[in-house]
Amino acid sequence: MEQLYQQVILDHSKARSGEGELDSPHGASFQVNPTCGDECTVQVSLEGQRLAQLAWSGKGCSISQASLSLMYEMVDGEPLEQAEQLGETFRELIHNRGHELTPEKMELLEDLSAFTGVGRYSARVKCALLGWMALREALAQARHHTGASGQPPQTQA
């Protein structure tokens, strides 16, 4: 159990960062986990090629809430490409059935590496990725609205 619920996950699920709403986001996405009704909304606004602001709201289990909270801390204010790359690496980790990725990728993930164990529980994969699905969609929308160039990296479900 302690492997799944790493301290950093428990901490972030209680003291969450980045909850709120933006006044005029460039992109927003609402996602729901139909098996349990968990939901989240992620809003983003861009400045050129930078994810200038991110805010999220939602309700869900500790895994989904901690994932959103950490996502905020790691991508808010960062270059778009970096945020999207992080999202893809995180997806890869969660789909890796509980095994770590290469040391370089684990380093990139920083605290998100605490989610490694989630991949062992197929029922929880969606929980960990819910916020990141919203982020991906919100960013695609924002790129479209702002005309920010560049393509998001290759994606996997």
């Binding site: 159990m1 799944l4 619920y5 098996t35 349990c36 009704g37 968990d38 869900g60 289990c61 500790s62 895994i63 809430q65 529980y121 029922a123 929880r124 929980c127």
Partner: peptide
């Protein structure tokens, strides 16, 4: 303060199978 998914997960870790979620009845929840 504890989401049903998390309740179910800790129970499952002890071999206890329960249902978590809205049980196909969102309005009553």
């Amino acid at each position: 303060g504890v989401h049903p998914h998390d309740v179910g997960q800790v129970l499952d870790d002890q071999g206890i199978a329960v249902r978590v979620g809205h049980h196909c009845a969102q309005p009553v929840h």
